[in-house]
Amino acid sequence: MPQFQVQDMTCKHCEANVINAIKEVDAGADISIDLSLHLLTITSIQDAATLGDAIREAGYTPFLLSEQ
């Protein structure tokens, strides 16, 4: 369950873009977002690198905090 900090995810529009990017690589991903802390926790069949790449391709800068 990777957890990312995405400092440039600052609004609901950004949140939707990040969710859509993740859903493109894993439609069944479970995504939890705390927008005020810029935290993103994902339960997915994809690895953290793939998820991070998807977030970057959407135009954001993810920082991997943990891969639990």
Rank of each mutant, 00 (worst) to 15 (best):
V25Q: 02
S32N: 11
D47A: 00
G52N: 05
I33N: 15
C11Y: 02
I55E: 04
T10H: 01
D34S: 07
L37G: 10
K23R: 06
F4Y: 15
C11R: 05
D53Q: 15
L65Q: 11
S36Y: 04
N20I: 06
A54V: 08
T50M: 00
T50N: 00
N17V: 10
L51F: 07
I33T: 14
L51V: 08
L40R: 00
T50S: 00
Q5S: 12
P2D: 14
H13G: 12
A48L: 01
A58W: 09
D26I: 10
F63P: 01
A16F: 15
D26Y: 12
L40E: 05
A29G: 10
K12H: 13
E67S: 02
D26Q: 09
I22Q: 10
D26S: 06
Y60D: 01
S44T: 10
H13C: 11
L64P: 10
L35E: 13
L65Y: 05
D47K: 01
A27M: 03
D8W: 02
I22Y: 13
I45C: 13
D47T: 00
M9V: 14
A48T: 06
D34N: 12
V6A: 03
I22A: 12
D30V: 12
Q5N: 11
L65A: 07
K23S: 09
V6R: 04
T50R: 04
D8M: 06
D8T: 04
E67F: 03
S44L: 11
I22L: 15
G52T: 02
A49P: 00
I22R: 13
M9Y: 15
Q68S: 03
I31Q: 14
S66Y: 02
F63M: 07
S36L: 09
V6K: 06
T10G: 03
T41L: 10
T10D: 03
Q68P: 05
T10E: 03
K23Y: 05
H38E: 07
Q46D: 00
V25P: 04
A29Y: 13
I33G: 14
K12V: 09
I19P: 09
L40N: 06
E67R: 08
F4V: 03
R56W: 05
Y60C: 00
Q7T: 02
P62Y: 04
V25T: 01
T41A: 14
K12A: 13
T10A: 02
E67L: 05
Q46M: 08
H13F: 12
V6E: 07
A54S: 05
A49K: 04
A16E: 13
A16M: 15
A27L: 06
I42D: 07
L40D: 01
R56D: 01
I42E: 08
L65E: 11
R56C: 03
D53K: 15
A16D: 15
L64N: 07
L64S: 04
V25Y: 04
A58T: 09
F63K: 03
R56L: 02
N20K: 11
F63S: 03
L51K: 12
G59C: 09
C14T: 09
I19L: 13
I31A: 15
